[in-house]
């Protein structure tokens, strides 16, 4: 299923309501989790989760804090490997290949499954170098011109090009919070991964920057599979095709965003979205 690349910066997809999004055909399973359990030392953080992630969908994880949604997200590109005491059981596949298989190269996996973090974390380098870092790392550009192209298209994709094109050599840390976060998204896009994981990408941003990032997510969803954790139910409702509700280490319910918000099957989901707890 080849989806042609969309012309950029012309898309005018509205900050969508759930309804308009359901209509997209999403059938191919990109990632699959079977009975995933995560332990921090002796404490179990995730109690056996099964989940399919479809190609080119936007999937949101919601739930009260400490419910394991970020932990699970970080399992999807093995970022949890960086925590010494963290242990993952079960099976997660990407295009039918087990990502926790012993011979699986985590470098390659992360090139396919990119991640954007809660707090913008640009490298203390220039804007250009921030974007060029990934492609250079993986040897994706042989010539300077190629690299320039990647940098420009990534920044355009992140809607940041017009704002920074005159100061590409200035430090990335000098941008505003929202710009920094979009820079980080552009940095991830520059490696052109299949899937982008976003861990509460807007929680450190003000409402206007949040709106921009949400719009960006919407545009990116044309060509990327996006899995995002959010604390904000309205955000899930605005951008996600499907929504998964986590509670105390369990995946309680996953369905189209519409279903989850209008007709939840589980009492806990109902209580959460109606604001009884969280």
């Amino acid at each position: 299923m080849n989806i042609p690349a969309q012309p950029m910066a012309t898309s005018s997809v509205s900050v969508g309501s759930g309804e308009s999004r359901v209509s997209k055909a999403k059938d191919k399973v990109k990632m699959n989790a079977q009975d995933v359990k995560v332990f921090y030392g002796d404490a179990q953080a995730i109690n056996g989760i099964d989940l399919d992630i479809y190609e080119n969908e936007v999937l949101a994880f919601i739930g009260p804090s400490g419910c394991g949604k970020s932990t699970f997200l970080r399992c999807l590109n093995r970022m949890n490997d960086t925590i010494d005491i963290c242990r993952v059981e079960g099976k997660i596949t990407l295009d039918q290949n087990d990502i926790y298989a012993p011979d699986r190269d985590v470098v390659l996996l992360r090139a396919q499954v990119g991640i954007v973090f809660q707090k913008p974390n640009p490298f203390p380098k220039s804007i250009y170098e921030n974007i060029a870092y990934g492609p250079r790392l993986h040897g994706l550009a042989r010539r300077k011109a190629e690299l320039d192209d990647i940098v420009e298209s990534s920044l355009r994709r992140a809607g940041l090009w017009e704002e920074v094109k005159d100061r590409l050599d200035k430090p990335g840390t000098g941008l505003s919070g929202g710009q920094q976060q979009r820079l980080c998204i552009a940095r991830t896009v520059a490696v052109s991964p299949d899937i982008i994981l976003m861990d509460e990408p807007c929680s450190a941003l003000d409402p206007i920057a949040t709106a921009k990032v949400e719009q960006l997510i919407d545009e990116l969803s044309e060509s990327y599979t996006i899995v995002m954790v959010t604390h904000n139910m309205q955000q899930a409702a605005r951008v996600a095709d499907r929504t998964a509700f986590f509670h105390m280490g369990d995946l309680v319910e996953v369905d189209t965003t519409d279903q989850i918000f209008t007709n939840p099957q589980d009492q806990r989901t109902h209580d959460y979205i109606t604001g009884r707890f969280g």
């Binding site: 042609p4 690349a5 993986h138 490696v191 052109s192």
Partner: peptide
């Protein structure tokens, strides 16, 4: 747009694997 995202991804994966 002559190169599809999918092709680009394939090409990219091969490049990375080589290095």
């Amino acid at each position: 747009m002559s190169i599809s995202i999918e092709q680009r991804r394939q090409h990219r994966l091969m490049t990375i694997e080589k290095s």
